[in-house]
Write a protein that binds this DNA or RNA. Structure first.
Length: 351
DNA sequence: AAGTCGGGGGC
DNA sequence: GCCCCAGACTT
């Protein structure tokens, strides 16, 4: 089914001219001026930033990016690091499968390609954690391969430009093939230009069309309601799950921590023990004997459900049954792979 | 094609 | 509160 009534190439020259004047300065970016003088971005930095930026804002990524580059300046350094160290540094950024795939990808690049990333999107696409978007982005930005770089920003720009009459998901491949026809020689700058355009001019709730280099051909402007696009699919309501979290401390004040299962939510990350998370709250079932004290609730919102945990703490003496985890000093929890949820739990008991 | 997978910033 | 973010992977 075709949804682009009159597909025509974008004015890529106008987009590039806009980008030459308005490109954002980002830590992982090579500016259009630098690129014009022959500078090429480092594929490792581009890859690292692209993975971190998946479904994640620039502001949230900046500190993590700097820290990873400081700790692991090359893909070989990252590949040589233990996965546990990578998870510690990723903690708080979310979508932890990205961190596991990041490490697996680094190992694969070293083992399969001698530490050099493939230069074409087709080759990049075979690596863990690199999907259609990321493969295209790396190949375009690093080598100017003329591929369509289609992220959420660009989807919005194109949905408005074409006044796309259906949700993006139903027309994604059509948008991709159409965009491919508009890619100029400066493929990397063009890709970053469209993403900057979506982030600054053609933003989710505001469209500054008078500033947009694509305004002359934009069907969304002609409808009089460009921000009405993209059309959103109906959203499912978020269920609530309930449970208990048990913060245990030994006689020395150390906190009992353990590793979550290999698969599923927050896989392989560090946690404090909790009950199952269920549709209705059940009575607490304390993991060890002690004088248990209630500390109120922690509420945490995940993508597809909302979690409300009752937080309990106790000093426990019989620690024999707590053998699968370890005891950590409160001052050392910054070096544990604790997701934000469990940092909230510790904070609620004053740790 | 739909579901799973975090967390935060902006409004 | 709600929306969305330089998406990938599984089923």
């Amino acid at each position: 089914m075709l949804h682009l009534s009159a597909p025509h190439p974008l004015d890529s020259a106008a987009v590039l001219a806009w980008y030459d004047r308005h490109a954002r300065t980002l830590p992982w970016r090579t500016s259009p001026q630098q690129r014009a003088q022959g500078a090429r971005p480092d594929p490792y930095s581009v890859w690292l930033s692209e993975v971190m930026l998946q479904q994640t804002t620039v502001a949230a990524v900046a500190r993590y990016f700097a820290r990873f580059i400081e700790l692991w300046p090359t893909v070989a350094d990252l590949a040589a690091a233990p996965l546990e160290a990578v998870l510690v540094e990723w903690a708080g950024l979310g979508y932890y499968a990205r961190a596991r795939n990041l490490h697996a990808c680094a190992v694969a690049v070293v083992d399969r390609y001698g530490g050099v990333f493939p230069d074409r999107a087709e080759g990049l696409r075979t690596l863990p954690g690199i999907g259609p978007y990321t493969a295209a982005a790396i190949a375009a930005i690093c080598h100017d391969e003329p591929v369509a770089v289609l992220d959420g920003n660009v989807e919005r720009v194109l949905a408005r430009y074409h006044a796309l009459p259906v949700p993006v998901r139903e027309a994604k491949e059509e948008l991709r093939s159409n965009l491919r026809c508009s890619v100029p020689v400066r493929a990397g700058d063009f890709a970053q230009a469209l993403m900057d355009l979506g982030a600054t001019v053609c933003a989710p709730r505001s469209a500054l069309c008078m500033l947009c280099p694509l305004e002359p051909g934009c069907a969304g402007v002609r409808t009089g309601n460009p921000t009405g696009y993209p059309i959103k699919p109906s959203k499912a309501d978020r269920p609530i799950r309930y449970g208990h979290a048990y913060v245990m401390r030994d006689g020395g004040g150390d906190i009992y921590l353990r590793t979550r299962p290999d698969k599923g939510l927050l896989a392989k990350m560090t946690e404090v023990p909790t009950s199952d998370w269920t549709a209705a709250l059940v009575e607490p079932s304390y993991p060890a004997a002690g004088d248990w004290r209630h500390h109120g609730q922690v509420v945490h919102v995940f993508t597809h459900f909302r979690l409300e945990l009752e937080v309990w703490s106790a000093i426990v003496s019989d620690t024999a049954a707590l053998a699968d985890g370890w005891w950590a000093e409160p001052r050392d929890t910054g070096r544990e792979a604790l997701p934000t949820l469990f940092r909230k739990v510790l904070a609620s008991v004053g740790l």
